[in-house]
Design a protein around this nucleic acid. Structure first.
Ligand SMILES: [Mg+2]
Length: 222
DNA sequence: GCGACAG
DNA sequence: ATCTTGTCGC
């Protein structure tokens, strides 16, 4: 057991600093045929949580596979260390899929992170799959509000380096924060998210995963 | 010392 | 993330 799951903030931060060297920001030659959305829902009182992964056909956005799993938070919520809380359950759900998605769309940031290794980078590196992050709010980095039309965007920078994009996916609707996780570029991640959000603020992948884990937590299976 | 702080 | 009622806009 060379490496157990981190228990302290120091251990978790060290793990991020160690793994971030494996991040690859190169786009894949071929566009993804299937895209997966991942999300987690938490129970009120107890420590239960449900992780869900829903795979959609990238062209039609129709669901082609889905998996859910029950688990426990693997780490307390600490801004910057959020990934350590949900990753075990998410990996569990990914293992239950009957297909291998070409891209993971994570609910949280990727490169736009204090140590440039947010959830999307972490999940991408551990699975080896292309991954990107979509945050509903800002975490870190300098940014400015983009124009008010769908497609308008502005960069998120850290030390002068562009690590992501503030992207408006719908006219006059609050923008989302996009950043690459693994095996994708800032521009590539931004284009993918815009294509995945033709009608609503959040990507269809995120919406599908959100609905799936909430439904499972509510009690039903399907 | 005082804000900011993914989900 | 989750707890919450009504309210505004398409
Ligand atoms: Mg979430």
């Amino acid at each position: 057991m060379s490496d157990a799951w981190p228990t302290t903030v120091a251990e978790a931060e060290a793990e991020q600093d160690r793994l971030r060297a494996r991040v690859d920001l190169t786009d894949s030659p071929a566009p993804p045929r299937t895209v997966a959305g991942l999300d987690v829902a938490y129970a009120d009182g107890d420590e239960r949580l449900v992780a869900a992964v829903v795979v959609l056909d990238a062209a039609t956005l129709a669901p082609v596979d889905e998996a859910v799993t029950i688990g426990r938070p693997a780490f307390p919520y600490v801004p910057g260390l959020f990934a350590f809380r949900e990753i075990p359950a998410l990996l569990d759900a990914l293992d239950r899929l009957t297909t291998r998605p070409d891209l993971l769309v994570c609910d949280g940031h990727g490169l736009a992170h204090p140590r440039r290794f947010g959830l999307a980078c972490h999940l991408g590196v551990l699975t080896g799959l292309p991954a990107l992050g979509v945050g509903k709010t800002h975490l870190t980095g300098e940014w400015s509000m983009p124009g008010e039309r769908r497609g308008d965007a502005s960069p998120i920078t850290l030390d002068g380096v562009t690590v992501g994009t503030v992207l408006r996916t719908q006219d006059r609707v609050r923008p989302v924060f996009v950043s690459p996780g693994h095996r994708i570029s800032v521009a590539g991640a931004t284009a993918q998210v815009l294509a995945l959000a033709p009608r609503f603020r959040l990507p269809e992948t995120t919406r599908a995963a959100d609905h799936a884990c909430r439904a499972a937590l509510a009690g039903r299976t399907r």
